[in-house]
Each structure stands twice: as C-alpha cells, then as structure tokens.
Design a binder for these strands. Structure first.
Length: 637
RNA sequence: GCCGACGUAGCUCAAUUGGCAGAGCAACGGAUUUGUAAUCCGUAGGUUCGGGGUUCGAUUCCCCGCGUCGGCUCCA
C-alpha cells in the first residue's frame, strides 16, 4: 500500500488506487467536503488523480492561496461555459486567475454590455445548480487541434500549436462545455458558491496591440458569500479613499485639461503638505550626509545621446524642441546632470562617497489612456539621489540607504515591507566580477537589516542589480515606491573617474535611489492610506479656532496668533453661524483639532478641544493644549 | 495609442416617446448671536465637452474630435 506523508508529518496508508479525495476522506469528513484539489510532491493535481506510489500530499482547500486560485480559475471556466451557452458564436481564448479574481477573454462580434454580464452571471448560477462534474482527460495533440477547429475555436487551436510537443494536453469537461486547460479544477460546478462579474474591458490577444482586440470579462470568486461580501466592501472602502475624489473634496490638487493631462496643479492645501514632506526629506538627508543639487529641466539633446536615453528610453520621452538651431530635450531623468556635476572637476578617492540629492522634476511621455490621477502622470518630482562611491563602499552605502528608506516609510505610517532583489539579466553591461560583488553587497545589506526578501533572478536592469521596496497601505494594498539601483553603465558612457590611492584613475560606482519615488504618486498613496485623515504633522490645517458668538472673537484671534507663533497651522472661524454648523464643515474637511471658544473659555484663558473623532476634551488651559499639540506634531504620530 | 462606458451650474445629480434645462449643496445678499456634524428667507449662476448633421424642434438620434473613467503583463 502506498504511504502518503501529510504536512504535519503523519502518514496515511491507503489501498491503491488511492486519490487525493480518498486521503482527505481518511483524514476527516469535514476536510473531504472542503477539499478542492491536492498538492502531491509539490505539484497541484485534481482530487480524483490516482496516486500509486508514496508521496507527500497536502489537501488544498479554499482557505489556502492555492485553493482560492483554483476556485477562481474554475469560476473563469464556469463563466466561459455560461458565455458559450448564451452566445455560441463567441470564441473562447484564455481565462486565468489573477490577483484578486479572474478574467476570461472572448472573441465576439460585439462588446459585452452590463446587461450581458447580468445574464451571464445568472446562467453561471444555473450551471452551479446543475452541479456538473468537472472531468479531466488527456488528448493527442492533433486530435485536440482538430476537435477545437471543428468547434470553431481557432484561438484554442493556435494555443495548442504553440505548446511544446512533448507536453501532454489536458482538457476539462463540465457538461457540454470542454476547454483546454492545465488545471487542476474543482471537482464539480456545485463547489463554486460565491462569485461576481465585475467589469468588461478590451484586451489584446496575447497582450499585443498589433493583435485583435478581444472582449475581456473580469470577475472575482471566494470560498463563501461572506468572504465575497468582505471583498466588495473593501472595494467600496477603496473607492471612498480614492485620492482623486479626496483631492477635490479637500482642495489639495487638480489636473485640468487647460494645462494638459497628467500635469498636476498643487493647490495651497496640497502645497502645504508637500512642503511639510519636503522639509522632512531635506532634514533627514542632511542628517544622512547628503548634499543637494539643483539642475535644469532641459538640456541639449546631445546629453541624452551620450547617456543613451535617446536609444533605450526614447518612447518615454517628449519630443525635443529646437532652440537656436539646436535640439533641446525636456528631462525624463535627473541622473545625467548629476554626472556632469561629478565630472566638472577632478575627484579624489578621499571625496567618495559623494551623496547628491535633488527633488528633481521630470517629464515622461505616457500614453493618454494610462494617465490616472496622481498615480500615473506626465510630470512629476522624484526624491532622487545619486551616490558615487568606490566598490568597497557599496555595501555600507546600500545599508545606509536602506536605513533612510525604512525610516522614511515608517514615518508615513507604513510598517510592512516587501523587499525584492533583482539580479543580472541575460543582456547586460559590466563584468561578471562587478555584478557578483555588487549583488552580494546588496544581499548582505538586506540580510544585515534582518529583512526578508525575494530574489528576482535575471530581473535586474541591463546596467545593474537593484532593490525594490514595496509597502502595504492601511487597507492591505501594496505599492512599490522605493528603489535602489546600481549603475555600471552611465559612469562608463560619461567616462567619469576618480584618482585612487595608487594615483591611477578609477571608475566610481553609481547608485540611483528614490525613497518616495514620485512625490505626486506618493502623495496620492498617502491620501488613500490615511483616507484624508492626515496625522497632525502633515495636515494642511492642524486646528481651527471657532467661536460661539462674536463676543468671543478677540479671544479666538489671540489663541490663533499664539499658536501660529509657536509654529502650528491654525485658522479661525469667526462666522456668524451655529457651532454645530461650523463643526460639521470643519469635520468634513478632516481638520485634526477644533478648538471651541465661548464665554467660559474666554474667561479662563482656555479652549475646548474636539478631536477628529468627535471627542470633546472639555475645558483645557490654552497653553497646556498648545504643548500637547506641539508634542504630537513633533513626534509625527 | 486601442476597446468599452461616460461628459448637464463650482460640486453631486435630475429632465417621460425628440417638445420652455431643474434640484440639493456651495457662492452672493439679508435676517438670526447661536455650546459640539447642516438656522431661515432671498439672489445670481448654463455655448447641456467642442464641431458638424438629421429634424418644425436635439441634453436626447447620427458622424468627427477632445476629455474622464475601467481595462489592454500575469500563460492553455
């Protein structure tokens, strides 16, 4: 009898022919009911896969990431099944599970409408009710091509032709519907209990804009209705936090046709916040031993020819303009300028490392269709810096950059990080020795910080390895902002050097790094992360003093004056309105503190603070409250 | 750029089959002097995204542009 080792180390012996389903049943009835598939010696298989030899077996249920993915993949098949029943002329193409759901691409004579989605969803429910078994079978290559061609499914036939001929082809059948698929799948359609179709979109066949546009239907699926509802609630929460909406409501910024798409106008309240962020950035960089540069927004096109951007970055650059019969290029990056500063005089090894930072505004051409609020723009400011150092200094520099990165991100309330190390790709510049040395230095710096990381082998840029840091926001979404990139290319192209201890000329290592990435995008992420409820130190207006009646105006003005002198951003609201009216208004502006002043406060030199959650702190002496807020702002909490 | 949806007052949204373009909030004026999320009355506000067409008549139907939004990498 074959012996099956379970994840907890225990062993089950099941008479042959055993299946994953039988093993699950032997463990318990509950698990048998929940089982969707199995992981056998690391490979995902269907529940009814026969197991004839000893193996490590794990039962896959919807509560695991694997299980959820299978569930979603099966739901995409369910959708394709429903589409074929309703619209037989539609051709199926591919339909994978994706990050938080699934999609399926169809070739159909017309786009699907929202009404179609409702109909498809209803038909999906009906197929679930039929509880059709989902059966796997293998098919010969030519037989499969013939079968799909006979069905009018030309995309499937094309897919099969592209599959290496030594690979077995598997098909999955549920009722009348059969689809080419690697699997595994849930055992029957009745197992799909909670799904929703979310949107339709165009998508190119194989993602290539030269190919035909297909109709993509997106949906999502979960183990049960409750989990689905929770996900839909999360989407609503994300919509409420949308920085485009909050940016308008809080009057932080705008993007207007009259200026152009992807070009951001920072309004006074948003500009205040940006200034606070920049002040913090300057302070930390000064402390970390950086110098600051200011460089031009455009340069002679030859500079971009030398840097190589004209070759490999052209499609992201705006067209050059002509000035005095010379071509000038608006900058998509800051690095060539920093190189020019380095090259402006002879550098000694004693000068290294040189850490030069610039809040550099760059302009990049993005296709009109991809512009998106502050997240995808055509003009933005990078918190850029370039470090020129000796090979032996790489590790210490990377380590210091990681310190600064984590410190910065934590200050803005991000606690969870995901680190990626990307190594040498096939086509690249630089010697094996330098790549090895640099990659090891990066790895050591990460490990030295006690951080977990994933290695993206071959995922680096052609000119050097890099570290990316992803953050997780308040509602669990991940964003990549920080990037630390080594560059063996630009120093070479600009032929920069320093004089070493040996009196000879040496090539410095160049490190590009950005912590927040684009200030615009980072600001958008902050808006969504905090849902507009910014911590005191960033809030554009930190407190509003509001009066009960005109009789208290003098005291309100006095309070505001003192607090402003102490460095806080304070407004007064002396309007002849009821307090409740004023409170509502400033609460909607998400002002952290409202200071109510009336008869008692005026008489006692006090204020009655109300926090953003509506909590009334009662009468507090004005200077006590001031100290409290100054502390809160200084702590950046 | 491509596919789809959408574009009405500063904002959020109405307007029946093609028949005088409206409401709430905001703004402005006045009254109200008010104690923890909306006081009352009044006034003004429009090239219905732009251009063309069909029609007696177009916010509505058609065509062309512009813009916004959702997508366009995640392998059968």
């Amino acid at each position: 009898m074959p012996r099956f080792t379970l994840p907890d180390g225990s062993i089950k012996e099941i008479a042959s022919p055993a299946t994953v389903a039988a093993i699950a049943a032997a463990i318990g009835a509950g698990l048998a009911r929940a089982a969707l598939a199995g992981r056998v010696d690391g490979r995902l298989v269907d529940l009814d896969t026969p197991l004839e030899t000893d193996a490590a077996v794990e039962i896959v249920t919807p509560s695991t990431p694997d299980g959820l993915e299978i569930l979603r993949h099966s739901t995409s098949h369910l959708m394709a099944h429903a589409v074929k029943e309703l619209y037989p002329a539609a051709q199926v193409t591919i339909g994978p599970a994706v990050a938080d759901g699934f999609y399926y691409d169809f070739d159909y004579e017309r786009p699907f409408t929202p009404e179609d989605l409702t109909a498809i969803e209803a038909r999906m429910e009906a197929i679930v009710q039929r509880d059709l078994p989902v059966e796997r079978r293998l098919m010969e290559r030519q037989e499969a091509i013939d079968w799909f061609t006979a069905q009018g499914e030309h995309y499937k036939a094309e897919i099969i032709r592209d599959i290496p001929s030594d690979q077995a082809l598997s098909l999955y059948r549920q009722g009348e519907f059969m689809d080419l698929c690697r699997g595994p799948h849930v055992p029957s359609t009745g197992r799909l209990k909670a799904f929703k179709l979310t949107r339709v979109a165009g998508a190119y066949w194989r993602g290539d804009s030269k190919n035909k546009m297909l109709q993509r239907i997106y949906g999502t699926a979960f183990a049960d209705k409750k989990a689905l509802a929770a996900h839909l609630t999360l989407l609503e929460e994300a919509a409420k936090r949308d920085h485009r909406r909050l940016g308008k409501e809080l009057d932080l910024f705008s993007i207007q046709d009259d200026a152009g798409g992807g070009l951001v106008l920072w309004h006074p309240m948003g500009a205040r916040m940006r200034q606070t962020i920049e002040d913090y950035w300057k302070q930390t960089h000064r402390e970390a031993g950086y110098e600051f540069l200011f460089t031009p927004h455009m340069a002679n096109l030859d500079l971009w020819r030398t840097s190589g951007h004209l070759d490999f970055y052209r499609e992201s650059m705006f067209n050059p303009m002509t000035v005095d019969e010379q071509s000038y290029q608006i900058r998509p990056m800051n690095c060539p300028f920093h190189i020019l500063v380095f090259r402006s005089r002879i550098r000694s090894h004693r000068d290294l490392p040189m850490r030069w930072a610039e809040l550099g505004t760059v302009y990049r051409y993005e296709m009109s269709g991809v512009l998106h609020g502050l997240f995808r723009v055509r003009g933005f400011t990078q918190d850029d810096a370039h470090i020129f150092c000796r090979e032996s200094q790489i590790e210490a520099e990377i380590s210091a950059i990681l310190d600064l990165t984590l410190q910065t991100l934590r200050t803005f309330g991000f606690e969870k990080f995901e680190i990626n190390l990307s190594t040498r790709p096939g086509k690249s510049v630089g010697s094996d020795a330098i790549w090895d040395k640099a990659t090891t230095a990066l790895r050591n710096a990460i490990v030295g910080h006690g951080l977990d990381y994933a290695e993206d082998v071959g995922g680096g840029a052609f000119y050097g390895p890099k570290i990316d840091v992803k953050i997780t926001d308040a509602i669990g979404r991940k964003w990549q902002c920080s990037t630390i990139q080594l560059d063996f290319n630009l120093p070479e192209r600009f032929d920069i050097g320093y004089i070493g201890e040996d009196g000879g000329r040496h090539r410095p290592i160049m490190i590009h790094r950005a912590l927040m990435g684009s200030l615009e995008r980072f600001f958008g992420i902050l808006i969504e992360h905090y849902a507009g409820h910014f911590p005191l130190w960033i809030a554009p207006v930190q407190a509003v003093v509001l009066t009960i009646t005109e009789a208290h105006n003098d005291w309100a003005v006095e309070v505001a004056k003192r607090w402003r002198a102490a460095g806080l951003r304070v407004e007064t609201d002396l309007r002849n309105h009821k307090v409740s009216y004023k409170i509502r208004e400033h609460a909607m502006r998400k002002i952290p503190w409202l200071l109510i002043v009336g008869e008692r406060e005026q008489a006692e030199g006090a204020v009655s603070p109300r926090d953003r959650h509506g909590k009334d702190l009662g009468l507090i002496p004005v200077d006590d409250m001031l100290q409290r807020l100054l502390l809160e702002a200084a702590n950046r909490t």
